[in-house]
Design a protein around this nucleic acid. Sequence first.
RNA 1: GGGGGUGUAGUGUAGCGGUUUAACACGCUGGCCUGUCAAGCCAGAGAUCGCGGGUUCGAAUCCCGUCAUCCCCGCCA
Length: 608
Amino acid sequence: MSPPDVTLTGRRIVYPFGGTMYKTHACGSLRPEHIGQRVSLAGWVNRRRDHGGLTFIDLRDRSGIIQIIANPEISSESHQIVEEVRNEWVLQVEGIVQRRPKDMENPALPTGEVEVEVDKIHVLNQALTPPFPINEETEVDEMLRLKYRYLDLRRQRMQYNLELRYRMVKYIRDFLDERGFWEVETPILFKTTPEGARDYLVPSRVHPGEFYALPQSPQQLKQLLMVAGVERYFQIARCFRDEDQRGDRQPEFTQLDLEMSFVEREDVMAITEELFSSMVEELVPEKSTFAAPWPRLTFQEALARFGRDDPDIRFGLELKDLSDLAVDCGFKIFERAVESDGEVRGINAKGCGEYSRREIDELTEFVAEFGAKGLAFLAVDEGGEHRSSFSKHMGPERIQAVLDRLEAQSGDLLLFVAGQPQVVFESLGRLRVYLADRLGLRDPDVLAFCWVIDFPFVTWNEEEGRWDPSHHLFTSPLPEDIPLLDTDPSHARGQQYDMVLNGLEVGGGSIRIHDRGLQEKVFKLIGLQPEVARARFGHLLEAFEYGTPPHGGIAPGIDRICRMFAGESHIREVIAFPKNQAARDVMANAPSPAEAEQLKELHLRLVD
RNA sequence: GGGGGUGUAGUGUAGCGGUUUAACACGCUGGCCUGUCAAGCCAGAGAUCGCGGGUUCGAAUCCCGUCAUCCCCGCCA
């Protein structure tokens, strides 16, 4: 059999496979060139159209659909069998590929110019009526889909998603292989992660009272591989975190774990950009992306312009700082905000000047969820008249300055939030995305990658009264900011980079600390006693004593990126067997109670 | 951990205090049909309206509880 001939046909990547005892060809591969050939096919009944005499069957396999025609004048036996057949039965058929009669072609099918007139049909298996339609894309209750996941996956949308994901992972392997990376597997049974999310624990039978933990990521191991001289490592790594679920989170997920020696952050970013930009071109050419280099935003810039550190840069509606104009402006709410170390920022909702009071109230309620005490507005009507919640308190020159700052034109709606920076950014950042959705500005065919860099190295933990690392313990600060660790830690920046796609954080990484002195300085800064550090990270710290190269890496989330490529809104749709919102596998019913016997063997006793 | 939405034949929905014997579409079953491809036509089966309690002369409809599920916040790199 010849190697797969990969072509893109619509959303499906179709290639022929066959040449087994059951089928000479894949259903979706038949074309006019096969006319006259005797073929055997096998697949599922997608649909049956019974004309009493002639009966048509759409036979479906992974590659696509072909029309089978059972003519009683050709084979009465086959025609009789076809009478009994129902949707989703598994058939093997034999017959001759024929050109369809004139005007009977189906342009909707890639195989639509031909059909197979059968003379032999074998029912390989019967099927119950499925609990939801397999042959059309209808909305189905989520729990039902998960319960019958094997049927859900039979549907075209899910087959596309499964294949897309496979292509992504294969593309990654090929791409990195060409650049000298080795894929190395790391343990699933490993050690508890001191910081971060909750661990999944695995009791040890042979060591009573002791536990493995499933890795939250192979972070420590990939750094050890750098010490080991691997220089360029990657892994399609399964990661486990026992936290509550969200639309873009699962208890287990997959990341492209990648680490390189003798690199600076630009090196890691460059190879990541090249990987994913070329992948978009290759796998989802119908989508457009920004060519490398992707836009780089500092953390401060991301906040100032978009209100978030995971900005969606596909559209404008950017935030503008108006704090300087708020001083003595006459509008008490703005003035007080600035006086109490707060600020005033606004966005220009282009073309929303006609919004009713009620619609604006709705926006106000929206930002209230994120702590905004109110939402000041200024609608610029045609002819320069204003409708505003504050213009009567503010002089005309100051209003003009506000209009200029937000580049307002007639028909625009300007929206303002005043308060503490955190609240201003959060509420306007959310409002910006909310408005973009309302205005249809988030083009699903654009994949806008960007980098956010120069994150604060540490953040102040109010509850514990100490500095916490923003990324993780082994992230290196920017070399020029190292002196700040002693004098002004809040202004030190880390060599961290977040990979953001359409407003979703899809990966993060950093250049790591490979110098013992600097590592100790960082431990000291975050209040980690040397003894405690040794207990938690002893193996790692010891390893670092034996000649550690400068290194850094990144971990792009495969599930999230795949779901964006597939145009899906949940990573569930690109995972073959996902868990539901409550972290339960409803198909297999996991987790489930353990047998008393098993518990005993594991030296475990349930407390309630 | 907190908040919100949803739950009606196999599926997707309508009905939201009484002319409902719970409706429609798809699916399912049977019949007719030789060019359909969401085939068509005819007939039919299929629902104690998630579960429990309450209000009422009367509850799918209102209230309380509970379960399931989805979403948001918290949590989470």
